[in-house]
């Protein structure tokens, strides 16, 4: 049963003032089954992140289809879906994680994670409990729970980001270069986090330029250059 299917997808960017159009990606086809973890790999500028951002609709894609099997709406083309439906999916079904943290000022890690829960309409007591659970599960240092994330390291910001996304128990989680600029030790940690997410049944699509990192972690690896999966069914 297909969970996410990308068909004939393409995206270009036009900068009107410079009268320039840049073709970021074209003719991308792949699909993900429920519970799978696929990695997308390719050199810098090959359009890996463009695909993820288009699935999340931060980018407005212009060609093809991205079919997603939603719990609320059934099979839905994310490229055509109304904005309101995308907002619903972001709130309840699809998460997006990068290393960049863009959050309300003067809000502590704990509050940020709690707000993720509250926005789903759950009561404050549940939010408190789930926030604490997820913060310790994803190993954010307890000292950092009640501080503002402004001064966090890259790895700490990432862990907070993952906690904010994971606490919603999304059905699909998009990981946009989570390991970029992390040292080896932090990468090992991220790897463990991803394994935990997978165990919880989350379907994952991630962009990495670090092939070693994906080895043995991803079920499939999609190579941007060849526009196909390279190592199908390597693990699990």
């Amino acid at each position: 049963m297909t969970f996410l299917k990308v068909e004939g997808f393409g995206k270009s960017f036009t900068i009107s003032h410079l009268n320039q159009t840049i073709r970021a990606v074209e003719q991308i086809d792949f699909s993900i089954d429920k519970g799978e973890f696929i990695g997308i790999t390719g050199k810098s500028g090959s359009g890996k992140s463009t695909i993820l951002k288009s699935i999340y609709r931060t980018y407005l894609p212009d060609e093809g289809k991205i079919l997603y099997d939603s719990e609320e709406y059934g099979l839905i083309d994310l490229l055509q879906a109304e904005e309101r439906k995308i907002l619903y999916l972001r709130k309840y079904e699809i998460g997006y994680v990068s290393q960049f943290l863009n959050v309300m000022p003067r809000t502590t890690s704990r509050e940020l994670v709690e707000q993720s829960v509250l926005e789903m309409g759950k009561p404050a007591s549940v939010a408190k409990e789930e926030a604490e659970y997820v913060l310790s599960h994803f190993e954010l240092d307890r000292k950092l729970w009640d501080t503002y994330p402004n001064t966090f390291s890259g790895g700490e910001k990432l862990r907070l980001n993952i906690a904010m996304a994971a606490v919603k128990k999304p059905r699909l989680l998009l990981l946009d270069e989570p390991t970029a600029s992390l040292d080896e030790q932090s990468k090992v940690k991220v790897r463990e986090l991803i394994e935990k997410l997978k165990k919880n049944g989350t379907t994952l699509a991630g962009v990495f330029h670090d092939i070693e990192f994906m080895d043995g972690l991803c079920d499939k690896v999609f190579d941007m250059k060849r526009r196909q999966y390279t190592s199908e069914g390597a693990v699990i």
Partner: peptide, 18 residues
């Protein structure tokens, strides 16, 4: 008109881009 993050990261109209 669009999702706020889309307007900010992938603006379509020349004025919005500017």
């Amino acid at each position: 008109e669009g999702l706020t993050d889309q307007i900010l990261e992938d603006p379509q109209n020349p004025y919005t881009q500017q």
